[in-house]
């Protein structure tokens, strides 16, 4: 396979390559295409050759008696199997890259709904159907849906992940080339499925900074996570210096929490989400099931704000006894 990038990308037959993952996927793709072409041609050539070479010459002619050749059967089972295993291992390797965001990835939030994509930058800026990102910065997308299943697909980045209602899924990419690339919804989602797309604008970091500085388009201001925390009176129980009624949330993200039934759970986005919407499902050891459900009261975007806020709460000083009234939360929302 010719690796001349200019050639391939000038043809309307090959997608642009604009992320670090793209070349990984393409190399694997070229390998499998080569395997496919080799075997297709091999079979086609043999079939055509035999069909001509052994064509029937007399109406009553019959073929030669057949003998089962076991070593041949084994050979053509084992060799394809070995090639398949190469493809499997290589494919799994690329898959792990695609689904394991690097630790320095910056987190963006994505909410899909019929039929639009809503994005939120870590700095709080929000966009619909357009997403501006800087080159060279790993970006992790935390995604959810307000209605049906969607799928976030950027062909130029070779990434795709389903976006489901009721839970968070993730994808990540690191753009390598400035430009504008398609966003598609790849999971059929109703009437305007084919128009549920948008554009990713990859910018040089300087341009991106400048773009961030511009005034956000006048969309309605969303309450910040901290404001929501107060609005939903979370702070009457979850306050920094007392663990009497509810677990302290500072520094809880990414930790293991011990549950009432003795099992442990990783505090991640999905656990926080469940704990807000269905608080009794997994109670932390030592606490009563006092918290009411917020199902139906908190919207998807508010949930994202709240979770971003809780994630930003850094452990205060040390130990949970220390009062931490003075520590200001590392607020990430606007």
């Amino acid at each position: 396979m010719n690796q001349g990038k200019g050639f391939w990308e000038s043809l309307p037959l090959f997608p642009e390559r604009a992320s670090t993952l793209a070349s990984e996927v393409d190399t694997l793709y070229f390998f499998t295409v080569a395997v496919a072409i080799f075997f297709s041609l091999l079979v086609a050539a043999l079939v055509l050759y035999f069909a001509v070479r052994y064509r029937r010459r007399h109406p009553n002619e019959v073929g030669q008696p057949e003998k089962t050749i076991t070593w041949l059967e084994i050979t053509w089972s084992v060799i394809p199997f070995l090639i398949l295993m190469v493809m499997f291992v290589w494919g799994a390797k690329v898959f792990f890259i695609a689904f394991r965001p690097p630790s320095n990835a910056v987190e963006y939030y994505v909410v899909g709904k019929q039929w639009m994509w809503k994005f939120q930058h870590p700095q709080g800026k929000r966009e619909i159907n357009d997403l501006h990102v800087p080159v060279g910065q790993p970006i992790k997308l935390t995604m959810t849906s307000e209605d049906v299943i969607h799928s976030f697909f950027v062909p130029a980045f070779r990434i795709k992940a389903d976006v489901l209602p009721g839970r968070y899924t993730t994808a990540w990419f690191e753009a390598t080339k400035a430009g504008a690339y398609h966003i598609f919804c790849a999971e059929y989602c109703g009437t305007e499925h084919s128009r549920m797309g948008g554009t990713i604008h990859v910018m040089e970091p300087r341009d991106y900074e400048a773009w961030l500085e511009q005034d956000a388009p006048t969309d309605e201001r969303l309450l910040s996570g901290e404001e929501l925390f107060a609005k939903y009176v979370c702070n009457t129980c979850h306050y920094p210096d007392s663990s009497a009624r509810a677990p302290i949330l500072y520094g809880i993200f990414g930790e293991q929490a011990e549950l009432a039934d003795g099992s442990r759970v990783l505090v991640d986005e999905n656990y926080l989400r469940e704990s807000i919407l269905n608080p009794t499902a997994k109670i932390v050891a030592g606490y009563q099931a006092l918290m009411p459900t917020y199902q139906g009261q908190v919207g998807e975007e508010e949930l994202i704000q709240l979770i971003a806020y809780i994630k930003g709460l850094e452990p205060a000083g040390g130990g949970e006894q220390t009062a931490s009234g003075g520590s200001t939360a590392q607020e990430t929302a606007p």
């Binding site: 793709y29 499998t32 496919a36 799994a92 695609a98 799928s151 070779r158």
Partner: peptide, 18 residues
């Protein structure tokens, strides 16, 4: 053979549902 390509994880991410 294209089915095998689709069951190769790294390729399926890109071509799934296309």
């Amino acid at each position: 053979l294209t089915g095998v390509m689709l069951s190769t994880l790294g390729i399926d991410i890109h071509v799934h549902d296309t």
